[in-house]
């Protein structure tokens, strides 16, 4: 099956203009073969980022969106109305696109569909080439893993610890926002939408907070094996009870992340197998 990268590279070679839709996961917008916009279901929309700071009103954005046309793009309207400076608009598009693309390249279970001609209402504000996008996504993935080498927190609710395991804490402004916004139910994705911050930035802040011991992680740190389920009496029942233990959520309120091909899931399965082998 063709990957997103190969489809995008093909469209880049054809200098295509239009949208590449990846089912429900999101959409790439291309202009003359280069990516000019992207949106992902996992990341806040550009409109949300703009209006979250309260400096830009939702009304101004809606108005620009409605009056945007072929000859006058929404982005130019926003700048002309003095809602944003050109630099702010460009930087916002840059943040939103890189944020969305990070999650789009990971999206699975969809069939990419290209529709020629479609354009985003903002118009092209910044041009990205596909290799540059892929390189930046790789860099971001490494950065996340350096902060905290486990993806298990990415989809779980963020739960700050009650007591801090040190005498003094230094936070960045985003880490502060994440801790204040965390209600023990919101996942990093929910927090990004709530705070109007890029989802990747929130993910990074969450992993940094985990590394600092400021939010709750599963009992063991990354790489360390968790305690195995206690062995119970009875022959074949063991298998069932072990499986039950393994699928139980880690905390009373924390739901399990959706099933993935994620290495943490694989690790769990390997530990389970070892436990079963030890039983026989």
């Amino acid at each position: 099956m063709a990957t997103v990268e190969s489809v995008l590279s093909g469209l880049a070679d054809d200098r295509a203009t239009g949208t590449l839709r990846l089912g429900k996961a999101g959409t790439f917008y291309l202009t003359g073969g280069r990516v000019t916009y992207a949106e992902s279901a996992a990341a806040p929309r550009l409109e949300d980022l703009l209006t979250a700071g309260r400096r830009v009103s939702a009304h101004a954005v809606r108005q620009a969106r409605q009056s945007a046309g072929e000859e006058r793009r929404g982005g130019e309207l926003l700048v002309a109305q003095g809602v944003l400076t050109r630099g702010e608009l460009e930087f916002c598009v840059l943040s939103a696109v890189l944020d969305a693309v990070y999650f789009l390249f990971d999206a699975t279970g969809h069939r990419p569909r290209f529709r020629p001609g479609d354009q985003h209402w903002l118009g092209p504000q910044w041009y990205f080439d596909v290799t540059g996008l892929l390189r930046e996504c790789r860099r971001r993935r490494t950065q996340l893993d350096q902060a905290w080498p486990s993806a298990e927190l990415d989809t779980l609710p963020v739960v700050p610890v009650g007591r801090v395991p040190c005498q003094r804490v230094v936070l960045t402004s985003l880490q502060w926002e994440v801790l204040v916004g965390a209600d023990s139910a919101a996942t990093p994705g929910d927090l990004a939408r709530k705070l109007g911050r890029p989802a990747y930035s929130v993910l990074l802040a969450v992993r940094q907070l985990a590394a600092a011991g400021l939010i709750r992680t599963s009992a063991a740190g990354p790489g360390e094996p968790e305690a195995l389920p206690r062995r119970t009496k009875g022959g074949t029942d063991d298998v069932r009870s072990l499986a039950a233990v393994a699928t139980e959520p880690p905390g009373p309120s924390a739901p399990l992340p959706p099933t993935t091909g994620d290495p943490t899931d694989v690790n769990l399965l390997i530990r389970l197998r070892n436990a079963l082998e030890a039983l026989s």
Partner: peptide, 8 residues
Amino acid sequence: ETVFDGPL
């Protein structure tokens, strides 16, 4: 400081 992310 920027409105959405950053700083730049």
